[in-house]
Design a protein around this nucleic acid. Structure first.
Lengths: 336, 336
DNA sequence: TCTCGCAATGTGAACGTACACATCAATGAA
DNA sequence: TTCATTGATGTGTACGTTCACATTGCGAGA
């Protein structure tokens, strides 16, 4: 039987075994310049032998840096945010940061504040907000937080700093595609009201429709789910003066198609449907979905780069918007 | 202009302003029993006034408890794991723990070790592994980690502790459903080889098929993606001695259906397809997908409860497997 | 030969908190 | 009255690390 392990080895244990002072060990750990190579090697060997791990708490205490990045995300498990989140984690880890995630209930104002408080209580050094809603900025201003904040998918002009896919351009791409096919009555199924990206996509749609001098139907507000797409699809069947629908994400597009097919309509024969996001399943929907692709992972990586540049003031950041791309598949066609 | 904030208020600042010793403040913070109500109130008021926040690093240093739970997940953004993850975060937060997530590249052995090291370097008090692969346990044993580990979706007998949906039962439900419809040639499109849940579903399928004295086709190994389902679907079209396919998840089922419909087959007329997971989109696939529903969120909550019971030795945990449920839709029917 | 300068290393704090123990007043029983 | 008991609070110390500031040794230039 092993003796009871009383306590993890500390920097002093390493120092004693290597025959140097604790400060020398500290210098090796933080690779300080003036350490004799032989000394460094001896210290590193002892560290390896006894399995020493620096105590993060002690480090954080004395440097008052937690090396933690907080991520605020929505509770719902959408593809885009999740993909960005993974990319954020990877990028942060590569830069020596730890990521602590917390989710807020969409639509609950208290939840945003509470989540931000939770992150601040952990002394995060910076915050990334994924898929932000207007409300987040309000809460942020209200709390007067003292750490840098970066947002994803936000094109809000008043955001402290944001890294975004050009949602407006993406929406225009999809809308123009439908217009060029010859559609003159296009309906937009938008995302929830206070979501900034939903707002941007809606704006892109409206601009493009207006530019083409088409009649503007007021966009319908959805909640990103396929269920809502399905319900809205059913309602739309009531009035037939449209030949195409542009949904603000792929899931709602799927629901729409379901409703149309179920009613005996042909997609894209009777109605064209375009989505947004290009989730991995979109190419296997029936019919395969025409949609707008955005690089969620790249977005996450850039967000971290942007945050780090504010934290460490070193790296130059590519601050341009990520450009989305139209992916043509089989759910859109010229009107009959 | 505000003067430069030199340093965050500490417990001593609170003590001075409240006219008590720092120890008294500490007691209030950890709600110790013997504090005069009037004193407690005075201290709390000062805390509120100056916006004091306990320094987690100092706390962690002295208690040698980080109050952090590490979560190890796969890089790919699947619905199930993501949903469980959100539930884990919520449950952990409710219990006063912080969650730090890290992802491993599926199929890369080094990545598992590296991710575990990363979590240990943060001094996490416990680890939850989502969607584990056999390899994780190997790495875990190898590192001889000193914190409790809980796994999700694992029915491996040798896991330290696991919280699972009864995958075998779920697979049997789906398979039996196809058999009862009259199918005699059923193919199983399984998940990747070393995924424990893939193994379990495959096992459930084989048991049920054997019980019914049907001819056993060797399961085909997939990678959970719709793309693979599509490719396999195409290959299957080569030999027609099957009337039904049971896919190990919904995405692969979607890909299969895509391949079949594209080839002019009718689903479920010519081929029945059943999936697993019941992701929110499954009911809007065309045709709506018959699948097996599992409660990912409940799984996450129970995993945290299990972990906390090991960390704090208090709560009694419901350790039964979560029971999955068959959801009948339109992608399955009797064979022609 | 002496001293200056630099490379390499060491010493004494301090970070903010919780624990163990000490202190003090008030209370009640002997 | 005296002393043990208890409730309420205070004092000293340790946690493991980094920072600021010594201190040493050695080679080069005067």
């Amino acid at each position: 039987m092993e003796p009871t392990r009383v306590r993890a080895p500390s920097i002093r244990d390493v120092a004693r075994l290597a025959g140097v002072s604790y400060q020398t060990v500290s210098r090796v750990l933080n690779d300080s310049p003036s350490i004799k190579p032989s000394t460094r090697q001896r210290v590193l060997q002892v560290i390896d032998e006894i399995g020493y791990r620096p105590n993060q708490a002690a480090r954080a205490l004395v440097t008052s840096k937690s090396r933690t990045i907080g991520v605020l995300t929505s509770t719902t498990a959408h593809y885009g945010p999740t993909t960005s989140l993974r990319a954020i984690e990877d990028a942060a880890r590569a830069a020596g940061y730890v990521v602590s995630t917390t989710s807020m209930v969409t639509g609950d104002p208290g939840s945003v504040t509470e989540s931000l408080e939770h992150l601040m209580a952990q002394a995060v050094e910076g915050i990334v907000v994924i898929a932000p809603q207007v409300r987040v900025f309000d809460a942020f201003r209200e709390l007067a937080l003292t750490v840098p904040l970066v947002t994803l998918d936000s094109t809000a002009a008043d955001s402290p700093r944001s890294m975004a896919v050009d949602q407006v351009a993406g929406a225009r791409l999809a809308t123009r595609h439908l217009i060029e096919l010859g559609h003159e009555e296009i309906i937009h199924l938008a995302g929830p009201r206070d979501w900034i990206e939903a707002e941007a996509r809606m704006h892109g749609f409206l601009v493009e429709v207006r530019d083409a001098d088409l009649r503007t139907h007021p966009p319908i507000l959805g909640d990103w789910t396929a269920d809502t797409g399905y319900r809205v699809g059913h309602e739309l069947l009531g009035y037939r003066d449209f030949t195409a629908v542009f949904a603000a994400n792929d899931q709602m597009a799927l629901g729409l198609i379901h409703a149309f097919l179920e009613a005996g309509l042909d997609v894209p024969g009777d109605v064209s449907v375009a989505g947004f996001d290009d989730i991995p399943e979109a190419s296997h929907y029936w019919p395969p979905l025409t949609t707008v692709r955005q690089d969620f992972a790249e977005l996450g990586r850039r967000a971290v780069a942007l945050l780090l540049s504010q934290l460490e003031g070193t790296t130059e950041v590519d601050h341009r918007q990520v450009t989305p791309e139209l992916v043509l598949r089989s759910s859109t066609a010229p009107p009959r």
